[in-house]
């Protein structure tokens, strides 16, 4: 039972992170390899807002979320906008460079020490006992709930609202979208904003649960195979990919070797790339597109 709970929590983490990868990829065909760092930045944003609004935890979290969304839009506006029209590869390398820049900058600003934003805000994180004898922390439970909420919201946004439909349209055929009056830069910036927002949210929750230091970016990188296993252009795929990767990881760590933790997602990914490179739900044409 505990294993199932562990899988659910880990899958939620991976799913929450990989929806950012998928969103940016679907809309702008760019793979953001800085996603782990951006997520970490969101969590550090909470450290800062927590020290500003220590008395009002709600305000601090909301401000951190807004900050993350603004950061995403800013990243597009300042950096990625210049990479449109360049080869996809250059754009991906730019995100890698951005990741490195952020890593250094974050250590400079917030030091390399482990931070506990939850403690700063006075949250306690009691353990919840579930029927069946499994236990998990409150924030882990929140993570699972948040995951469901984010996916539902994204689904609603992308299929039911005008801007969401415009976003899908821009991802499919940017030229036609622009000719239909859609402002591509605004759509891309919005996608980056949402992606970094969800990433930042994940980062905030993980930081509240387990503390925050420079290793968080690794989680971002590990979530990336989940997005690929599902197929980079599909949100449903990201969800399934996250479940598959998380299941494999939890089971292998439990039954085989704890050292495997970092490598399991990539093993799953390699297997996937050999069998069905375009992912579970991805479209085959994607392979030729990039």
């Amino acid at each position: 039972m505990q294993l199932v709970v562990n899988i659910a929590v880990l899958a939620s983490i991976y799913a929450l992170i990989s929806c950012g990868y998928v969103l940016i990829y679907r809309v702008s065909r760019v793979l953001s390899l800085a996603h782990g760092e951006l997520m970490m930045l969101g969590a550090y944003g909470l450290v800062t807002t927590a020290s500003l609004f220590a008395a009002q935890p709600g305000v601090a979290v909301a401000a951190a979320g807004l900050l993350a969304a603004a950061t995403g839009a800013l990243v597009y506006w300042v950096l990625m906008r210049r990479m449109t029209g360049e080869a996809v590869l250059a754009a991906v390398l730019a995100t890698i460079a951005l990741g490195i820049l952020l890593r250094g900058a974050m250590v400079l600003i917030w030091s390399a020490q482990v931070q506990h934003p939850a403690r700063m805000l006075g949250f306690d994180n009691p353990v919840v006992a579930l029927p069946g004898g499994a236990r998990l922390s409150t924030i882990s439970l929140l993570l699972v709930g948040m995951n469901a909420l984010v996916y539902l919201a994204l689904w609603w946004f992308l299929t039911r609202t005008r801007y969401g439909i415009a976003m899908r349209a821009a991802g499919q055929n940017p030229r036609l979208a622009a000719q239909r009056g859609i402002n591509l830069h605004a759509v891309y910036a919005l996608a980056w904003g949402i992606a970094v927002f969800t990433g930042g949210l994940t980062g905030i929750l993980i930081a509240c649960d387990a503390g925050l230091d420079a290793t968080m970016a690794t989680i971002g990188l590990k979530a990336f195979p989940a997005a690929l296993v599902g197929g980079l252009d599909s949100l449903v795929g990201a969800l399934c990919g996250a479940v598959i990767v998380a299941t494999a990881e939890v089971l292998l760590i439990h039954y085989v070797d704890p050292l495997l933790s970092d490598v399991v997602p990539f093993l799953v990914l390699t297997a996937m790339l050999i069998v069905r490179p375009w992912g579970l739900f991805g479209s085959r044409e994607e392979l030729d597109r990039v």
Binding site: R162, R168, A169, Q172, N173, L176, R180, I182
Partner: peptide, 16 residues
């Protein structure tokens, strides 16, 4: 000339 993966209604909706 159309967004292939969007429905007809969504195609009309996507235009700004």
């Amino acid at each position: 000339k159309v967004f292939d993966n969007l429905t007809v209604a969504e195609n009309l909706e996507a235009a700004a």
